[in-house]
Every structure is written in structure tokens, then in C-alpha cells.
Design a binder for these strands. Sequence first.
DNA 1: CTTGCAACTGATAAACTTTCTAAGTATCAC
DNA 2: GTGATACTTAGAAAGTTTATCAGTTGCAAG
Lengths: 178, 178
Amino acid sequence: MLACVRSSGLKLTPQRLAIVRELAADPTHPTAQELFERLRPALPTMSFATVYNTLDALASAGLCVALSLSPGASRFDPNMDAHHHAVCDRCGLVRDVPCEPSELLAERSDEIVPGPLTAAPGFEVRAVERIYRGLCAACAKGRQDESAHAAARHAGRSEENNRLRPAGARRARRPEHG
Amino acid sequence: MLACVRSSGLKLTPQRLAIVRELAADPTHPTAQELFERLRPALPTMSFATVYNTLDALASAGLCVALSLSPGASRFDPNMDAHHHAVCDRCGLVRDVPCEPSELLAERSDEIVPGPLTAAPGFEVRAVERIYRGLCAACAKGRQDESAHAAARHAGRSEENNRLRPAGARRARRPEHG
DNA sequence: CTTGCAACTGATAAACTTTCTAAGTATCAC
DNA sequence: GTGATACTTAGAAAGTTTATCAGTTGCAAG
């Protein structure tokens, strides 16, 4: 991937090197904020804007994609092969889900692109993606524990909730496509 | 839908009435900002926060859903039946795409929920949704015109671009799942 | 190895989206 | 009608993302 950075006409700075390495090594599709915080020990002077600039440059070069699949900050995906996503309703975590073999046999190695949508006349379909909504392993386990504790103690809000809710978001939010 | 508002224990205020009516009548899944601006003539004193409060109340009552399918503001969907979405890469517009008959035959009237994901062990799938990415009719036509004009005049950036990009976003953004 | 330019970084401001707070107001059950 | 409660308004505030600009640095050419 680093070679692609150079061949895309992008200069290979220490900041970009660190960001690309961290992004490529992380299957959880981190946000810009997460990348920034993880790299802060190694690059204490790096600006937050540099993280965004770099991710934008990578995306423009076709080396990663910005995902907006749940409220809150965008997540960045270095996997440019055809794949789908599993999105946690609770913490927003995103994991890749490979295409099924039948999909990979399609003409485009990307996704199966069907004919025009009768529901949306004139809409030009470029790609079709699938989103699996639900609870990631950690949140599913967390909820079990929570309800178990809630049964033991009557109503004590004891567990600190580790939901990674969008920034200012404090209220509960109904999951999409309920 | 208005009856549902009352039966959900929500008070039926003029603001809510207007918001519900506007939302239910609009198939394009407007943002909070768009609803606010459209209702401003009828309700000049309505606060922007009221739009958010109302949409949040509706979502919590299960009467609409907040969609985060592209960067920028959330869009609100009053259609609670099982369906998918077509999302415009350029302007962010969202249109509903009904499920196919085969999907509606599934056990849940919602979506076909497959077995556990081998790619994400422990992930509890609640629903599967499909996103058709591409260009809406208006943007597809707009791009044709743009390239036609660009060919005529050599490089004049004459057409004002009507992209509804996320807030501060000025730069071009690579569509997801490129 | 030096040099120069273009691209990049860092810092900050700013725009936008969303939520919170506090005080006043209106809805609805009785 | 009347009161409790939920709602609205307005403004502040927090989080995300982009713009601006001066200073620095990567890197290609010499």
C-alpha cells in the first residue's frame, strides 16, 4: 500500500506513513479521531487536520474509502476489494464481510449491478452494497451482562455504558431500519 | 400516522403536526435542515431544535428512522415497511427501493436474516439492508450537461454545481465503495 | 550534494450537525 | 376550566469536517 501512495503522486511523509500503517493494520475501520489518538504517542506534534488531509488524499487516490454507515464520525476502510459491512447498532463498529462466491462471479468484480431501478426511474446504479445491522460480539455480550445485572440489582444504572455514540449524542437512538 | 403519534403517548402540537405531514408527504427523505426551511413560512417562530426533538421523538416511537447513509446530515424516513435505499453519490438524495417478492416471503416481513457471519464471529445480525449507490436522475443529467458544456467551452467552470455536499465540504469526495 | 518548487504540515478559525439547558408555554387528562 | 407534565424557544455548546495561511519538507533535477 505504501508503494501505491508514492505511485499515486503523493509524497511519503512520516505522518502519512504512520497513518497508512495504522489504518492498514486495523480491521475495525477507525475514525479520524481514533487514528489521531493512537498515533499521538509516536507523533506528538501531528495536527488533527493532517489526519483528515491524509485520509482525504488516500481516498482521492482510490487507496481507501470513507464510510458513513452510522451517525457520528466517518470510518475509513483500507480494503478496496469487493465486500460488504457489518455495522454495530450500539457502538458503530464496522467489520468487513466478504462477498459470496456467486457475487464474485459477476461481470464486475465489484458488486452485482442490476438493471435500472423501477422504483427510482433515471437512477444510474454504480454498485450495490449490503449492510448487516446488529450487535457486535462485545456489545451483544455487554447487553447480556447488563440485563443480568439489572435483574440482580433492581434498577441501579451501575454499568458505565461503553457506547461510542455520536459526539454530542446522549440520548438513545433507535437503530436504523427498525 | 398522526393517530400513531397520539397513541405513542406524544402530544400533538402544531409543530409536530406540520413536521409529520411534511415528512410523510416527501419521498426524498429530507434532512432536518430541509424540513425546517420548508416549514419556516408556515411556522416562522419554530425553533430548529424542535425539528430535531420531534424527529427524535418520532424515531423513538418507531414512527420514522434516521438514516446515515452518506456524509453530512441525517435523513429521515417515514416508511417503516421493509425496503432498501438508492443513494445518490453526488447530492446525497435517498429514494426507497421496495423489497423483491422473494424477500417478502421470508420469515420476518423485514429482511432476510441469514445465519451467523463467519467473517464476524459473535456478531448478532438483526437485519440486512441493501444500498444502491449511483447517480440520481437529476445528477446524472446534470453531469451529462456539464461534460457537454465543458467540451464546448474549454475549461470554464461555468455551471454552478448543485451538489448538496456535507456542510463545510467543498472538496470532491470519492463515492463509497469505489 | 545542493537547490528550488511544489506539496505538505501545523495551528487555528470557521462551517455545519446535533444535543443540551433553562425558562416560558401549551396540551391533555380529569 | 385547571393543573401536571410535556413541549417549545432561543441560545450555548460539543463534535465533526473543511478552509486558510505561514512555515517546513520531500523529492526531482542539476
